[in-house]
């Protein structure tokens, strides 16, 4: 499969989800929408990777889920960040900062 514009670089999706959940608790669709909006529609989140990613984060204890209500009044899983998740976000942000700085240096765009 060829890489399309807007595909999320492998490994960064977890960080993006954690970042979104750091601001507010959201359901799965909301998370996808928020990432899309924040990136000005550059980043398109594929549902096929979103839900496995969410369950991976649940499994590692970085997010938790409760049954909340959607805007339409139907019950839906709402995800929020745990203390461990916040710590993880912090370390991932640091790593990302170093990485992107390094990539920029190489590309001469810094």
């Amino acid at each position: 499969m060829s890489r399309r514009r807007g595909d999320v670089i492998k490994g960064t999706l977890d960080m993006l989800i954690l970042q979104v959940l750091d601001r507010e608790d959201l359901h799965g669709w909301g998370i996808a929408k928020r990432i899309q909006q924040s990136s000005k529609d550059v980043l398109q989140i594929n549902q096929g990777s979103l839900y496995p990613a969410l369950h991976r984060l649940l499994d590692r204890g970085w997010v938790r889920s409760v049954v909340g209500e959607s805007g339409g009044g139907r019950p839906v899983r709402v995800y929020s960040l745990t203390t461990d998740g916040r710590k993880q976000l912090k370390s991932e942000r640091e790593t990302w900062g170093q990485l992107s700085a390094a990539v920029n240096l190489v590309l001469g765009t810094g």
């Binding site: 669709w29 549902q47 839900y51 649940l58 590692r60 204890g61 959607s70 019950p75 839906v76 461990d84």
Partner: peptide, 29 residues
Amino acid sequence: GFMRKWIERLRNLAFPEKAAEQTLDEMEF
């Protein structure tokens, strides 16, 4: 966090149908 992680894991293991149902629900949504 450690406790919650394992409670979640065991709950999924014990009630796989429930975990699957929730997943399906949120995908439909």
